[in-house]
Each structure stands twice: as C-alpha cells, then as structure tokens.
C-alpha cells in the first residue's frame, strides 16, 4: 500500500489544470477528491508521473439553477450535492444518489466530476446523470465543448475526455417528475452490486454495474414511452448488458436483479 514516487503540481483553475496537463503529458493525472485514484496508486495499479491537484480550484465548486438547467461545478463534493436544498428541489434524484455514495468520509472528499471522469461502471452518479440526460462540459487548450452523458462513457474506466482536457462541470435538466434510485448492496458503504436510477417516471433509466460502462436502459425507456407498465418494461432491463462476475454476483444473478430493481424503481417513480 505504498505508492510509487510521483510528481505533484497544484492547479487552482481549469486553465492552470489544462496547462499542467499540456506540460506533463499523458502520464499526468488530475487529482480531485482522490477517492478512486489514491487507492489505485497505493496498490501501484496507477503510476502517474505527475499529479495535478485541482483540490483548491474553488471556482469549480457549486450548484446553480437557472431556468430549466442545473449547473454543477466538477469539484462539487457528493456531500455538497447531498445537502443542497436547491438541488433537492430542482433535481432530487441527483441529490439522493449522491447521498448513497460510499460513506460520509468518501462523500466529503469525492467529487461529482471525479466520479464521472473516472467512468467506473459501478459508481452511482454516472447512472443518475445518464438517466437525467445530462451534459458534461470539457475544457481543453482550444476552449470548452459539451458532451452528452450518453456519449461520454466510452469503455471501462474510459471517457470521451481527451488527454489534455479537464471536466469542468455538469449540466442536468431540472427534473422533479417521478424518480427513484434502487441501489442493491450488502453493506451501506459498498458499490452497488446492481443499481437502477429512474428519472421522470421512466423517461430516463440508468444502470449501475451492468457492463463495462455506466449504461442507459434504452429498451426500458422505449417500453415506458410506448405505454408499457412497470413489470413489462422492466422485463427488458438486462437487454444489451454484459454484467460482470465477482464475489457478490454472477452475470445471471445480476440480470435477475436488474429486472427486479428496474420494476421497483419504475413503480416508485410512478411509471
């Protein structure tokens, strides 16, 4: 549990972070809350040459609601999401999902942007942002661009971010329709064995830990749009998934769980 030697620079703004990534190249890694990266480094499974620490880029912290859009800075902690009255009113699904991440210590350090950029299929927040139809804002040397959440997760722990881009923020629509997050795990602090996030009564459905990336349950969304009831719609929840196998669940059990949890989530969301 002793990491390899690593360089360290601080970047207190997006611009500084982009510049540092440009200077230090592919082997540099951005450090936000460190809740995924640091454990990987301690196991020497990650060996960045330089850590670009964005922990004090305070401009990237915060939640604002403007009309139909909620804008959240990438460094906003899970705990801030969990306890924001504004977010609870404008997008209760996201606030609730944030409250289900890890344990209080993890939620105080971990950030929304870090969780999305890490692109872990077992993480809670990516599925919520998918279900909400969110948009991610990436900033690089040439300026900023928007990436739909649906296009963001490209592979296991891989995202559409270029090596010299920084995830600056996230936008999700104001969403107060029926929602639910069904997280199935054995201990409160654990990753979901399977999770299902439902937004707007089933218009958006995101799945946790059902493949190599966070997934959208398109077949379920289509069935709901076509007027199917919760049970019928949930029957297709495992379609197109390739669930992993681990100590807690094999693929067949995960497929069973995702159907059960999707039905429960749709019912809870009023579908």
């Amino acid at each position: 549990m002793i990491p390899a030697a690593v360089g360290y620079v601080r970047a207190d703004s997006v611009e500084a972070a982009v510049a540092a990534l440009g200077e230090h190249g592919d082997e540099a890694k951005l450090l936000a809350g460190g809740q995924s990266l640091i454990p990987l480094m301690r196991l020497r499974l990650a060996r960045p040459s330089v850590l670009v620490d964005m922990g004090r880029a305070n401009d990237l912290r915060g939640i604002s609601v403007d009309g139909d859009t909620v804008s959240i800075g990438a460094l906003t902690s899970h705990s801030d999401l969990e306890h924001s009255a504004e977010l609870a009113a404008a997008c209760p699904l996201l606030a609730h999902v944030a409250s289900q991440v890890g344990d209080p210590a993890v939620r105080h350090r971990g950030t929304l942007g870090g969780s999305l950029a890490h692109a872990d299929p077992a993480s809670d927040l990516p599925a919520a942002v998918l279900a909400l139809g969110g948009t991610l804002v990436a900033t690089g040397p040439g300026g900023s661009r928007e990436i739909a959440a649906t296009d963001f997760f490209t592979g296991f722990l891989e995202s559409a971010l270029a090596a010299d881009e920084v995830l600056a923020g996230v936008r999700v629509p104001v969403s107060t329709g029926g929602w639910s997050y069904q997280k199935f795990n054995r201990r409160a602090q654990d990753w979901a064995i399977v999770g299902v996030a439902v937004a707007e009564g089933g218009a958006g459905v995101g799945l946790v830990n059902m493949g190599s990336t966070p997934l959208r349950a398109s077949a379920v969304e289509a069935a709901v749009a076509g007027g199917a009831g919760a049970s019928d719609a949930a029957a297709s929840a495992a379609e197109g998934t390739e669930p992993p196998s681990d100590n807690n669940a094999d693929p067949a059990y995960r497929e069973h769980l995702v159907r059960v949890l999707t039905e429960r989530a749709l019912v809870a969301a009023g579908a």
Partner: peptide, 11 residues
C-alpha cells in the same frame, strides 16, 4: 476491505 465485508456501524 471493499471485497472482504467487515460490517460497519451502518449494518
């Protein structure tokens, strides 16, 4: 301790 499930106070 992510894979070996020692219970916490929450359990």
């Amino acid at each position: 301790l992510a894979d070996y499930l020692v219970p916490s106070a929450a359990e």
